[in-house]
């Protein structure tokens, strides 16, 4: 894999066809048809657009695609192929942590990245603190917090 491409969900994507001023969010949704990643605010405030870049949660609305040559991007569409991602999805389902669902891909991807970034010994308050960049206007967060607790237990 060279500097002229980006790997999205395991598939190489040539950068040559992407305009230099395009944001990763737009490349994913409109060029690659990966509409699971959502645009909530386009200003970094809501977390709906979070994807993993080389495993780290990243705001795709504030990242230029051309800034990521050679990187590996994981979106909600392939998160279930990651064992931790699978556990997180299952936890959201088990807790019914979804109402309209618009925020859900961002939460699932962000939590997957976080569980892999922090050591298993990380205390729950730290996990909840680091998840505050994701907003939900429906659930009131109770079910989402339960899903975070459940996913944490299942990955320890």
């Amino acid at each position: 894999m060279g500097d002229s491409e980006l790997v999205v969900n395991g598939r190489a994507t040539a950068l040559a066809s992407v305009p230099e001023d395009e944001r990763l969010l737009d490349t994913l949704r409109w060029r690659l048809g990966l509409r699971g990643t959502k645009e909530g605010c386009r200003s970094g405030d809501c977390g709906a657009c979070v994807v993993l870049v080389d495993g780290r949660s990243t705001l795709s609305c504030l990242t230029l695609t051309h800034e990521l040559p050679g990187a590996s991007v994981t979106t909600i569409e392939s998160i279930s192929e990651d064992p931790v991602g699978r556990v997180v999805q299952d936890a959201f389902v088990a807790e019914g942590a979804v109402q309209c669902g618009y925020c859900t891909p961002g939460f699932v991807v962000a939590l997957t990245g976080l569980l892999k970034e922090l050591p298993p010994s990380a205390p729950l308050p730290e996990l909840l603190d680091e998840m505050q960049g994701n907003l939900c206007r429906c659930t009131g967060y109770g079910s989402i917090v339960r899903a975070i607790v459940r996913a944490r237990e299942a990955t320890r």
Partner: peptide
């Protein structure tokens, strides 16, 4: 500063 995903960049 911001959120974790913001601080990653």
């Amino acid at each position: 500063v911001g959120s974790l995903a913001l601080r990653h960049r």
